[in-house]
Write a protein that binds this DNA or RNA. Structure first.
Lengths: 218, 218
DNA sequence: ACTTTGTTCGAACGAACGTTCGAATTAACC
DNA sequence: GGTTAATTCGAACGTTCGTTCGAACAAAGT
């Protein structure tokens, strides 16, 4: 059980050089990915059947397999692209900003903006985080670890700069919880936009964490 | 399509009077519920098959249907019991405590203690919150709404007593996020016990929320 | 002992699952 | 227009799904 076979017909895969040529194949693939994201979001990965995906994307059941070799790889493509994009945007936004508090606020804003602009994809990323196995799972887990470590770095920076004392691990994971839980309750007709929510969550979290001068650690 | 039929053979249901007689039937049922909770936790509701549950609980596939009429009702029983218990414990712990901050801290401690002592059940409650439909879903949703409203009440109390200004809705849902996200990362060999975690999360959240004297609302 | 009721099971049901195959269709190039 | 390669599809594969049925076994009441 390796990565052999089924690559016969899929020799059409592009080797995206510097500028992606944006072929017909690539365009169609990301259309399908978009539809699949909606279905996974609504019914869950296990609950969504390949026939559901076929119906939603308007392509025949067999036709889908021209673009990916398995349902699992499809979820992998969605998660990898989503997570990769959010990390890449974060890095570019952090460039040139020195103030520690401001950098944490940028982290929160970047997360929430992308989360609310791509709710379906982010729910699939959060909610189906455990279903990918072996190679697929390991690759997504690596991006997640990088993202986590960036946030740890930002908070350690803040701690040192202001002489604070708190458990970085618990603070980071609490912050992720606040932000990622949104997919269970956010209603665009009731709740504010990403900017305001980032401000408010940033206030709660940062005031909470910065009011810990010299107190107990651990 | 309502709740007719399939109640022929299940006339064995007990009408739990004041003191539950704890019959053989009840005992066996909650054993099965326990095993099912573990399987749902590990593989997800959709990913777990009735044959998985049969294997884990040591009972034949057909035998399971003597205790519940469908897989969906099984999930309902788990969620209802778990959520009902946590609400009931919370109410009893809040009795006789007047200080607003202390009441919020009790809420957090109660949640985390139950969460860590019943991780599998709480993960099934959190992670499979959307799969129950119609009647089953509505009943669990009602308990959830009650639990949510209790927390809103506690925070409004705190706001009034200390003249604070923040969005109660966002604060409550952020707190739930911090707490419920735990099932994705908690490792008993690395992380502290429920008491310490409740203290730390309570510090972050309460300091954050209480540092908002007279500021902007909304 | 017999009857009754409660509990368990093997075997099967039809439906739905993910995936494959070979042929048909469409687009690209000469 | 004819040849080649890329794309799509209907039909089926074998497996697993949730659920049911009737018979078998165990316990309780007489």
């Amino acid at each position: 059980m390796g990565s052999t076979s089924t690559t016969k017909r899929i020799s059409a895969r592009r080797h995206r050089a510097q500028q992606p040529p944006e072929t017909r194949y690539d365009r169609r693939l990301s259309e399908i990915l978009g539809h699949a994201t909606e279905v996974f979001c609504k019914k869950g990965y296990e609950g969504a059947s390949m026939r559901d995906l076929s119906r939603e994307s308007g392509m025949s059941l067999a036709g889908l397999y021209y673009y990916f070799e398995s349902k699992e790889r499809l979820l992998y493509l969605i998660q990898k692209h989503t997570f990769g994009t959010i990390v890449q945007r974060l890095k570019s936004r952090l460039e040139g900003v020195g103030d520690a508090e401001q950098r944490v606020r940028i982290f929160i804003l970047n997360h929430l903006e992308y989360f609310l602009a791509n709710q379906a994809a982010m729910k699939v990323l959060s909610h189906e985080a455990e279903v990918l196995k072996n190679g697929f799972g390991a690759e997504v887990a690596a991006i997640k670890r990088e993202y986590y470590r960036i946030c740890v770095g930002l908070l350690d920076e803040l701690k040192r700069e202001r002489g604070l004392q708190f458990s970085t691990r618990l603070a980071v994971l609490s912050l992720f919880g606040m932000m990622n839980w949104i997919y269970t309750w956010h209603n665009p007709r009731v709740d504010a936009d990403a900017g305001s929510m980032a401000d408010e969550m940033g206030d709660i979290f940062l005031r909470g964490v910065m009011a810990s001068k010299g107190g107990r650690e651990k």
